[in-house]
């Protein structure tokens, strides 16, 4: 990785630092509120999900769409980099930005499940599957945002990936091999949950590799 690409990766962390900080605090607070009762659990879980989803969408909008719209892309591309370097830096930089918040949010959620006496530990496998799904979902969103040139298309990708989270919760959460163990006192790590992890990881890798094979090879980027 060239010096300029490294600088651009760091640039993403710098310009999004306030968003990372505030979203991190928001997700941690939401997880902290969840064990305080049934209503608090629902409010906390919903807030936690909203913070992570909204943060991902904001990153795609600010980091990719607005950079193009507000013409700062021209400044970045005037630096000694190729289109491929730009796509690599953007992909890595924004993914790192998401990863920082994701790590905070997931750590808080795991801690909440394991520490809170009223929250069953059986929720842990599904919490991890959902968390990994959200990471994958962001990678898909980023892939779409880097590929799409129009604002409308990026918005469509945001809407579709957001809807996909609800679909994931309703379908994966309803699988008997998972649903039956959600209220268990100890986590149950069965073949189904591992298969979910494997599929998520495969999609994650594809979503991260795709922009390098498509957007990075573009000859016209403006």
């Amino acid at each position: 990785m060239s010096v300029v690409t490294r600088k651009l990766v760091m640039k993403e962390l710098y310009v999004n630092r306030w968003m990372i900080g505030s979203a991190g605090v928001g997700a941690a607070l939401a997880a902290a509120v969840a064990p305080l009762g049934k209503t608090a659990f629902n409010v906390g879980a919903l807030t936690w999900l909203t913070v992570v989803i909204a943060y991902g969408a904001m990153l795609a909008i600010h980091g990719v769409m607005n950079e193009r719209k507000e013409q700062s892309l021209q400044f970045v591309l005037s630096l000694p980099i190729s289109i491929g370097d730009y796509v690599r830096a953007k992909l890595l930089g924004l993914f790192l930005c998401f990863l920082v918040l994701w790590t905070i949010a997931v750590t808080a959620a795991i801690a909440m499940v394991l520490i809170a006496p009223d929250v069953p530990d059986g929720l842990l496998p599904f919490t991890l599957a959902l968390s990994l799904y959200m990471l994958t979902n962001f990678a898909v969103l980023l892939c779409g945002a880097l590929y799409a040139r129009s604002e409308g298309l990026v918005t469509a990708v945001i809407v579709i990936t957001n809807m996909a989270i609800s679909i994931f919760m309703f379908t994966v959460g309803a699988m008997p091999e998972i649903q039956d163990h959600l209220h268990s006192p100890t986590p149950v790590w069965n073949r189904t949950i591992f298969n979910v992890f494997i599929v998520e990881l495969i999609v994650l890798v594809i979503a991260l590799a795709l922009p390098l094979a498509t957007a990075a090879r573009r000859r016209d980027f403006l």
């Binding site: 013409q71 700062s72 000694p80 190729s82």
Partner: peptide
Amino acid sequence: AFAKRDVGYVSADMRLI
């Protein structure tokens, strides 16, 4: 990437970050 090390580019519609 190599050429732009020695090129300064400014456009009227260019914006900084």
